[in-house]
Nucleic acid binder design. Structure first.
Length: 110
DNA sequence: GCCATGGCTAGTA
DNA sequence: GCCATGGCTAGTA
C-alpha cells in the first residue's frame, strides 16, 4: 500500500485476482478491503484502466446491489462471461448475490 | 470535469 | 434522484 495516502491500482488488481471463478465482488468491497471506504468510484476507474483483462478478472466486479456494473467491452459480454462462470441472472441482477459475494482477504505485502 | 459507485433522502402509492 | 468521493484526462494559458 506504499504511502497509504493513495489507492494503488496494483493493490486493487492483486486483491481482485483472489476472487475465484463463480464468485464476484463489488467496487465498494474492494475499496473497503484496501482501506479506502469512499473510493468505490475510483475502483471503477481503475477497472476501466485494467491493462490485462486475461489476468485480472475485472468482469467479477459488480455493483453493490447485485447489478451488473460496467464493463469496457460492454455489459452484455460481462454478463455472458459471468454466466459461463456459473452465475445466474434475473434480468440484470445476479441471483443469490449475497451467496456469490467473495470474502476479501488482504494478503501480506512483501 | 468526467465516470464501470453507493448511500441516503424525498415523495408517491 | 441527488450528490460526495477519488482518480484521471483533456484542454487552456
Amino acid at each position: 500500500m506504499k504511502t497509504g495516502r493513495r489507492l494503488d491500482a496494483k493493490d486493487v488488481y492483486d486483491l481482485l485476482r483472489t476472487v475465484p471463478e463463480g464468485q464476484v465482488t463489488t467496487y465498494g468491497d474492494l475499496a473497503k478491503a484496501l482501506g479506502f471506504p469512499r473510493a468505490a468510484r475510483a475502483i471503477g476507474r481503475i477497472m476501466n484502466a485494467n491493462p490485462d483483462p486475461i489476468v485480472v478478472p475485472c468482469h467479477r466486479v459488480v455493483a453493490s446491489d447485485g447489478g451488473i456494473g460496467g464493463y469496457g467491452f460492454g455489459i452484455k459480454m460481462k454478463k455472458e462471461i459471468l454466466t459461463k462462470e456459473g452465475l445466474l441472472f434475473d434480468g440484470d441482477m445476479i441471483v443469490d448475490f449475497e451467496k456469490k459475494r467473495a470474502v476479501l482477504k488482504l494478503k501480506r505485502k512483501k
